[in-house]
Amino acid sequence: MSTGTVRDDITAEAGAPAAQGGLRQGLKRRPMQLIALGGVIGAGLSVGSGVAVRSTGPVAVLSFLTAGVRWRAAGSFNCVCPAPRCGRSAWS
């Protein structure tokens, strides 16, 4: 029986229903680690981008836009002309 404290929610067994909301804890350790890693990387990119924009001004924004357009073009090209895999393309 849960008393509604944070400690009880953390130590609840995976898959056990919650007392009030009817929600279950379904994420395992690996997906939680990947979500945390993505959060750390995203925060680092945000801080790094802010520092770059502050020190260089609008040139950094132009640089980010240029890089984004190039990555999008590369992704589009890879979808149109996929690299062969074991003698077959990804579309066959």
Results as ranks from 00 to 15, higher is better:
Gly22Asn: 03
Gly22Leu: 02
Gly22Met: 03
Leu23Thr: 13
Leu23Asn: 12
Leu23Ser: 12
Leu23Val: 12
Leu23Gly: 09
Arg24Leu: 05
Arg24Ser: 06
Gln25Glu: 14
Gln25Arg: 15
Gln25Asn: 15
Gln25Pro: 00
Gly26Pro: 00
Gly26Cys: 07
Gly26Met: 04
Gly26Ala: 10
Leu27Tyr: 05
Leu27Arg: 02
Leu27Cys: 06
Leu27Val: 03
Lys28Gly: 01
Arg29Met: 00
Arg30Asp: 01
Arg30Leu: 11
Arg30Gln: 06
Pro31Glu: 02
Pro31Lys: 01
Pro31Phe: 05
Pro31Ala: 02
Pro31Arg: 04
Met32Asn: 07
Met32Gly: 00
Met32Ala: 08
Gln33His: 10
Gln33Met: 15
Gln33Trp: 12
Leu34Gln: 15
Leu34Pro: 00
Ile35Glu: 13
Ile35Ser: 12
Ile35His: 12
Ala36Cys: 08
Ala36Lys: 13
Leu37Ala: 15
Leu37His: 10
Leu37Pro: 01
Gly39Phe: 01
Val40Met: 12
Ile41Tyr: 07
Ile41Leu: 15
Ile41Met: 14
Ile41Cys: 08
Ile41Val: 15
Ile41Gly: 06
Ile41Arg: 07
Ile41His: 04
Ile41Lys: 06
Gly42Tyr: 14
Gly42Asn: 11
Gly42Val: 12
Gly42Trp: 14
Gly42Leu: 14
Ala43Leu: 15
Ala43Asn: 06
Ala43Gln: 07
Ala43Met: 10
Ala43Phe: 09
Gly44Trp: 09
Leu45Cys: 08
Leu45Asn: 08
Ser46Val: 11
Ser46Asn: 05
Ser46Cys: 10
Ser46Glu: 10
Val47Glu: 06
Val47Phe: 13
Val47Met: 12
Gly48Pro: 04
Gly48Cys: 09
Gly48Met: 11
Ser49Lys: 06
Gly50Thr: 02
Gly50Ser: 07
Gly50Lys: 01
Gly50Pro: 00
Val51Ile: 15
